[in-house]
Design a protein around this nucleic acid. Structure first.
Lengths: 199, 199
DNA sequence: GTCTATAGGCCGATAGAC
DNA sequence: GTCTATCGGCCTATAGAC
């Protein structure tokens, strides 16, 4: 998955890993400082080379965002595909919460932070690149796993909040002194209690 | 409250309302487009004058942020003071949710969006202005109203999530087709169900 | 209170050498 | 793949006229 072309040569070139390193650094800086206040120069210097070298790997700053979006989209799509292959039921819903938590502990939290702080940027980038299916659609299919077919508005909201509280854990626990593990376990219980009742 | 000085003359000058109009426009643009991509020129033109005139009212762009922070801080402090004067109990907790919802429907949602997208900026601005008590402290006292004295980690998280879901309603309901009123009512029920049980 | 004009700096992006 | 050098543009902020 994610077969995007290099800047200089063609597709599927030997995996130097430079693009991935650029993406990771860029995502970290975007989520910590904001997209606009992170310059191409800063990203490059953090990686030990100059801005011009960066433009060899990505043809523009927005192109880095496009790559980040594709990475996250494919991660969500994978989770949805896995969920679609399982038996529906309370057990599946608990496992979706666990997997979502795992994604959010990887690069996901940074990604989520970036997405919610740059709604317009992301929307505008995605609308000019004719993408097959966006992350919003993938999220919609994920929520469908968590809700009965003709769920009420409240139940549909509950499904969305059940995943959102996981993303908000950092913000909510900033002033709570307790191990991270205890906080994550408590959040998982709260998330499960938010899910709409059995169906 | 909020007796900050004008740019040109001294304190308590006649309420031309220009500062307030500048704050409102700036907050809207900051929350919609981001702080960095909103320029002083754009704020000024939206109000029908030029950038230089803006610098008469606020000595810098960060100074606008300082004024916005003070406005929000005093709103939270007022809510905390009111809650402190009431009888504790389930009824008070429901009313705090209702008042929080009201604040968030005023300028609060924009403020919250701005705060969570510009954590570093806000922290750096507040640390060099020696402010008596920050918003974080005011929020802490608000959470205390919603939790028993020696609450568990889970209950403390529940209190924070109960308020956070109200701020997250817009994001969670983006793909749900229903009136705003129905969504708000459902969110209020979910928020109440998140509060830690009676104490 | 609002204006024009400008200083001084950083930005994204490109050209072309190595 | 990485570099130096540069372009054109927009930014925050200030000076000084009205």
């Amino acid at each position: 998955m994610t077969v995007t072309s290099r800047g200089g040569d063609h597709a599927a070139s030997p995996p130097s890993g430079t693009r991935e390193r650029i993406q990771a650094v860029a995502l970290r800086l975007f989520s910590e400082q904001g997209y606009e206040s992170t310059s191409m120069r800063q990203i490059a210097e953090e990686l030990g080379f100059t801005k011009a070298a960066l433009y060899y790997h990505f043809k523009s700053k927005e192109d880095i965002v496009r790559a980040l979006l594709e990475t996250m989209r494919s991660e969500v799509a994978d989770l949805v595909m896995w969920a679609g292959s399982q038996e529906p039921g309370p057990d599946l819903r608990r496992q979706v919460i666990a997997r979502w938590t795992a994604i959010m502990q990887h690069q996901g939290l940074r990604m989520f932070r970036f997405l919610s702080s740059n709604y317009r940027l992301v929307r505008d980038i995605r609308s000019d690149s004719g993408q097959r299916e966006g992350m919003a659609a993938a999220m919609g299919r994920l929520f469908a796993v968590l809700t009965p077919p003709n769920a009420s508005v409240e139940d549909r909201l509950r499904a969305r909040f059940a995943l959102l509280v996981i993303n908000m854990t950092g913000m909510a626990s900033r002033d709570i002194e307790a191990d991270e593990d205890e906080i994550l376990a408590a959040t998982a219980r709260i998330s499960a209690s938010l899910l709409p009742p059995e169906f």
